[in-house]
């Protein structure tokens, strides 16, 4: 995994999936549709991404189209850097 992906994965594992083996969470694991990210968790993740990568995420981007997998999240972050 590349930098952004690894950072996001570490955050998700630490914050929302403590005790889960790293191998279980892949770049394509569904986060929102899979029930890992609910509304509160999504907002926490947004705050983390904005702070960690120095970007600004819009309200309409906080959904399945942009945050459902680590791959999508990394693509969103890259598009804003």
């Amino acid at each position: 995994m590349q930098g952004i992906e690894a950072t996001v994965k570490d955050y998700i594992l630490g914050e929302f999936l403590p005790g889960t083996a790293a191998g279980e969470l892949t770049e394509s694991t569904p986060l929102i549709t899979g029930g890992i990210l609910d509304s509160i968790a999504t907002l926490k993740l947004v705050a983390f991404l904005e702070e960690r990568f120095g970007i600004e995420i819009q309200a309409h981007e906080a959904g399945v189209d942009h945050l459902n997998t680590i791959g999508y999240i990394a693509r969103l972050v890259r598009s804003k850097q």
């Binding site: 914050e15 929302f16 999936l17 889960t20 279980e24 969470l25 694991t29 899979g34 029930g35 890992i36 609910d38 509160i40 968790a41 926490k44």
Partner: peptide, 15 residues
């Protein structure tokens, strides 16, 4: 309930 979850988290699992 949300404030409680913000503070204490919610148990989630992949498997």
């Amino acid at each position: 309930n949300s404030l409680y979850e913000v503070r204490h988290g919610r148990t989630r699992t992949l498997g």
